[in-house]
């Protein structure tokens, strides 16, 4: 199946290169994961003192990390609530605008994606202080939404480009009300994208650090809590969090590959 554009030697070099690159990507993660099971109370793989699960137990009793997890989920849900309608509205307008004014609006709506995260956090922090809202979960939601809404919009735009508009027009001609058309034709067409965008928004929000650290003020999310712990030294409890992340991602990836390959067999 593969194209024979390379000589055997070149292919070998490329394969070795890719192998090394993947190794480079995975080795640090493997080291981090392994140390979570070491009973030595400094995360290490070179000073192995026996297999243990006690750090998992320690995590389960870590109130601040658990509260951080709850806060992260709250923020992520807030981001979904704000950014999905915003992204959808932006996409609906852009698909109906002319080339020139469209490009203008498009630039503004995409700009948060290209802005450094700390800038988004800072500007939201300053803006909401004007209204007496100090840094916290709410400001974090607003700061994150400003760029996550852009991602949602890009997903919706891609979907709307494949939309057959005659369907909506036909329904209108047949006497359906605008709201009915929107509810029965437009939204069902966009529903899969709504789901994808919500998942993307959740993950982006959950992972976010650079924006959140400025906007969060005195509160904390799972990620900002991990970061502030790392300042005081390493603890295997953080490795446990890492193992859980790695495991979840691997499960998701393997499911994806299996699903993707199934139709071919």
């Amino acid at each position: 199946m593969s194209t024979a554009t390379e000589s055997a030697g070149a292919r070998l070099v490329l394969n070795i290169y890719i192998g090394l690159f993947v190794l480079y990507l995975f080795l640090p993660l493997a080291v981090m994961s392994a140390a979570a099971f070491n009973s030595f109370d400094y995360p290490s793989v070179t000073q192995w003192q026996g297999f243990t699960l006690k750090w998992f137990v320690a995590l389960a009793h870590d109130q601040r990390l658990l509260q951080g997890l709850v806060n992260s989920v709250l923020v992520a849900l807030g981001v979904i609530v704000v950014s999905i309608p915003a992204g959808l509205s932006g996409a609906l307008i852009l698909t109906r605008l002319g080339q020139r004014s469209g490009t203008m609006l498009y630039s503004v709506l995409v700009s948060p994606v290209l802005t450094p995260g700390i800038i988004l956090g800072i500007s939201s922090l300053i803006f909401w202080r004007e209204f007496g809202v100090p840094g916290g979960l709410f400001v974090a939601v607003m700061a994150q939404s400003s760029f996550i809404a852009s991602y949602a919009m890009l997903l919706f735009l891609a979907r709307l480009q494949r939309q057959d508009r005659t369907l909506e027009e036909a329904a209108l001609d047949l006497g359906a009300s605008h709201t009915l058309v929107f509810r029965r034709i437009t939204l069902p067409f966009l529903a899969p994208t709504c789901f994808t965008a919500a998942v993307v928004a959740f993950l982006q929000s959950f992972e976010n650090y650079n924006t959140t650290v400025f906007a969060i003020g005195g509160e904390w999310t799972l990620v900002t809590e991990i970061a502030s712990r790392l300042r005081f030294g390493l603890s295997p409890v953080i490795n446990v969090v890492g193992v859980i992340f790695v495991a979840l991602t691997l499960v998701a990836a393997i499911t994806y590959v299996v699903l993707k390959q199934k139709p071919k067999t």
């Binding site: 990507l25 995975f26 640090p28 993660l29 080291v31 981090m32 140390a35 995360p43 290490s44 993950l203 992972e207 650090y209 990620v223 991990i226 970061a227 790392l230 390493l234 953080i238 490795n239 969090v241 890492g242 992340f245 790695v246 991602t249 691997l250 998701a252 990836a253």
Partner: peptide, 16 residues
């Protein structure tokens, strides 16, 4: 997979 792992944890791995 490594791309999807939290940026913080990737940094942490190097810290270790």
């Amino acid at each position: 997979v490594p791309y999807a792992i939290n940026e913080l944890l990737r940094v942490y791995a190097w810290l270790m």
